[in-house]
């Protein structure tokens, strides 16, 4: 099974990468840009009997390494 795991900042946590990107886009003339926020995506392929089991496994990965729970959250999107 393959999942895209999105890691992003919790609401209220400053996102300097997103802010700087927005500033640069506006400088390039994209005046309609309202907000840019950064995301990090890991595509993970796991062996699992079913989706539930795979989701448990990936949640464990997020809690142990991929996300810092103080500032980040994660969502899982299934690719196949």
């Amino acid at each position: 099974m393959i999942a895209d795991v999105y890691i992003y900042l919790k609401e209220g946590v400053a996102d300097p990468e997103g802010e700087a990107t927005k500033k640069a886009l506006r400088l390039l003339g994209f005046k309609n840009v309202k907000k840019v926020s950064s995301r990090k995506v890991f595509r993970i392929e796991v062996d699992a009997r079913n989706r539930e089991e795979a989701e448990r496994e990936i949640s464990g990965m997020c809690e142990k390494l991929l996300a810092n729970p103080v500032i980040q959250k994660y969502t899982i999107q299934w690719v196949e």
Partner: peptide, 13 residues
């Protein structure tokens, strides 16, 4: 133990 703080990206990026 579990994380209780983070060292985030500098405000200046």
């Amino acid at each position: 133990g579990k994380q209780e703080m983070a060292l985030g990206i500098n405000d200046s990026n």
